[in-house]
Design a protein around this nucleic acid. Structure first.
Length: 311
DNA sequence: GAGACGTGGAT
DNA sequence: TATCCAAGTCT
């Protein structure tokens, strides 16, 4: 199991003269990670910052197993940001395949252009510069800075939020939207040492992904079950309003998805008539197509023809 | 801050 | 079959 760079010494608070690098909670999770981390391509040293960044875009709301093959294709085709920047944005959208939320492909292309233009072709190391790139928000900026460059940032994704909600706060699920209290907690739990903080970020995320899952959590395999506030409280069920689930069937999103699928599979401009076949209801169909055009995902041509954007 | 934004596997 | 969920971002 290859995991990111290991600190030179033990994380444990063993008897001795050195100050602990982390408290027992963090040290235990990091030790568990050392033994149980998945060998994912973007965690290998050869992935580099660009590989980490591409993976983070793809993993926004898309499961690891579906990302893996597309990630390999992207890194083979566009091994550096400048390679992607040279290609048409529509090629990024096409190569995105069925990962979903294709605006991410457009934003990743835009980020590559910005990196080529403003950063000499290298993924920036600075959190604020990362945050300024299209498609990079609070989470992704922290993740790239932490995983690619070993920096110390609170990395608060859905996995970490759930782990902290249970282990520390003692509730089954975190709030729907990230709160200031969660940020404060994540900040407080960040180990002082930079490298240890980066490992804690990856480790706590992995624990949420493999053990402390949203449903069917595996507390019997959890390294911190004895410290877990939720466990100690008897694993009370979530109270309050149901966590919002999004409907999909019949929405504009579904229509947009069908329209874009036609354009992805075509390697020449597509006539309006071909797009009309994907959805029976003309008003919604037109609205969805307009939306794709205004989002820059589709380029309208003369004579009612459409294609993925060339620029 | 609520809602839009894709897709497919699991239960 | 219906709902939930997956390393979020943007408006």
């Amino acid at each position: 199991m290859t995991a990111p760079t290991k600190p030179p010494q033990s994380h444990s608070t063993d008897a001795g003269c050195d100050a602990p690098l982390a408290t027992p909670l963090q040290a235990t999770v990091i030790d568990w990670f050392d033994e149980n981390a998945r060998d994912l391509p973007w965690r290998r040293p050869e992935a580099g910052p660009w590989g980490v960044m591409v993976s983070e875009f793809m993993l926004q709301q898309t499961p690891v197993n579906r990302v893996l093959p597309v990630y390999e294709q992207w890194l083979t085709r566009w091994p550096r940001p400048a390679d992607l920047a040279k290609d048409a944005p529509g090629e990024a959208v096409r190569a995105w395949g069925r990962l979903g939320y294709p605006r991410r492909a457009l934003r990743l292309h835009g980020a590559a252009v910005a990196i080529a233009e403003r950063h000499g072709g290298d993924v920036p190391t600075d959190h604020a510069q990362l945050l300024a790139l299209p498609g990079i928000g609070e989470y992704t900026a922290a993740a790239v800075a932490s995983f690619a460059y070993g920096q110390r940032h609170p990395v608060l994704d859905t996995n970490v939020r759930r782990v902290l909600a249970r282990a520390v706060t003692g509730v089954q699920y975190p709030p729907n939207a990230t709160t200031a209290a969660e940020r404060k907690l994540a900040r407080a739990l960040l180990p002082d040492d930079e490298g240890t903080a980066a490992r804690w970020a990856a480790a706590s995320m992995e624990l949420g992904a493999l053990v402390c899952t949203a449903k069917n959590e595996s507390c019997h395999r959890c390294p911190i079950t004895a410290l877990c506030a939720w466990q100690l409280a008897g694993k009370p069920e979530h109270e309050g309003p149901p966590r919002r689930g999004q409907t999909y069937a019949g929405t504009d999103r579904q229509v947009r998805g069908k329209l874009l699928a036609v354009l992805r599979d075509a390697h020449a401009p597509v006539p309006q008539a071909a797009l009309d076949r994907v959805w029976h209801e003309p008003v919604q169909r037109a609205r969805a197509l307009d939306g794709l055009v205004s989002d820059g995902l589709v380029e309208p041509l003369q004579g009612g023809m459409y294609r993925l954007p060339l620029s």
